[in-house]
Write a protein that binds this DNA or RNA. Structure first.
Lengths: 181, 181
DNA sequence: CAGACCATGTAAAACGTTACATGATTCC
DNA sequence: GGAATCATGTAACGTTTTACATGGTCTG
């Protein structure tokens, strides 16, 4: 899966592993994240498999920056993946909900504290999306020439926003529910 | 993580691997799932680690049913895990959103078809939660003696419901957005 | 010159998926 | 007797996390 994301980014332009890590941390982090160690090793594997090529930025580059570029084979691979539709829903894995599910015998005060902490964190996440959303210029009138990318970027951003809003709503309900015990 | 879920269930009552798989598939599947192969191997590992014990249901049981029971050490382990609060938000991994993010160059008709397919699947999921919700008797007046478990079970069920509702809302927005292209 | 950030890697362990494998019971 | 479901496992493979490891650059 990480492979597809890296190909997706490299399809826009050549990038280093470090830049890809940053791209994942900012743009894609809501729905996929990865540690740098995995990114670097996956890139090397992809190079072996002929999906990307890499070159040192300059022969004497002290930072040893290695720029990756997608190959035709890589582009094919990416297209193939995108053209094969998903026919299931992605499986959710939410540790916090597991904790809640098994919280019947915990001290209610401690559960409440944890719910409040999550509320704080999800509020921060929501603020983040709200800012990003406001920063987004009216794409309708600006850069729409030739590319429809922004439509889809906005859609995923909007999902992040809706998700956090829904999560906060639920947390507030949960807090009330536990308080009434 | 799977370990904690299995301990959580076994803390209610002794169960076989098969029953645990069913419990995961019905109660917990919205926020955690696992294949039977992983469940059986994890149970064996937990037995080695002294967190559970296992016994054959009957010496001549042709079905080789093996019943697992939690030990004191297992109960400790579970308590410890529950008492250590989470101070981050769980990371989401949604393959479908990755696909949408990189869909700028796909045939819009194919993207639409995929969005409609997801809409169908998430509608089914929502119906499921709605049924479960209606089946839940008014716990307030029934089994509340001694256990607060149902409060938390209902909360996770409610989250499943809200999540699917939000997802459908987003899908409808996404469909409109792509149609207008 | 210290601290933040740039930049890349290896290795081991943990976790998760897929495929293979087997055989019993139950209901029609 | 055939199909669905009960019931448990192993092995290979692939993915992800965690810890270790190193050194350069840039800003105040």
């Amino acid at each position: 899966m990480l492979k597809n994301i890296l190909l997706g980014y490299l399809n826009y332009r050549p990038m280093t592993g470090y830049e890809l890590k940053q791209a994942l941390d900012t743009s894609t982090s809501f729905f996929w994240h990865a540690h740098h160690s995995q990114i670097y090793t996956t890139l090397r594997q992809m190079e072996k498999d002929g999906l990307v090529t890499s070159t040192q930025k300059a022969e004497d580059d002290a930072l040893r920056r290695r720029v990756y570029d997608i190959t035709d084979e890589g582009r094919n691979d990416l297209r193939q993946w995108l053209e094969t539709p998903m026919s299931e829903v992605s499986h959710v894995k939410e540790e916090f909900l597991v904790r809640i599910f098994f919280s019947g015998q915990r001290d209610p005060q401690k559960v409440l504290a944890e719910l409040h902490e999550q509320h704080k964190l999800h509020t921060q996440a929501l603020d983040n999306y709200q800012n990003l959303r406001e920063c987004m210029p009216a794409h309708e009138h600006s850069t729409l020439k030739g590319t429809r990318d922004h439509i889809f970027w906005n859609l995923t951003l909007e999902m992040g926003f809706l998700y956090e809003k829904m999560y906060l709503e639920w947390l507030e309900m949960a807090i009330k529910s536990v308080e009434q015990t």
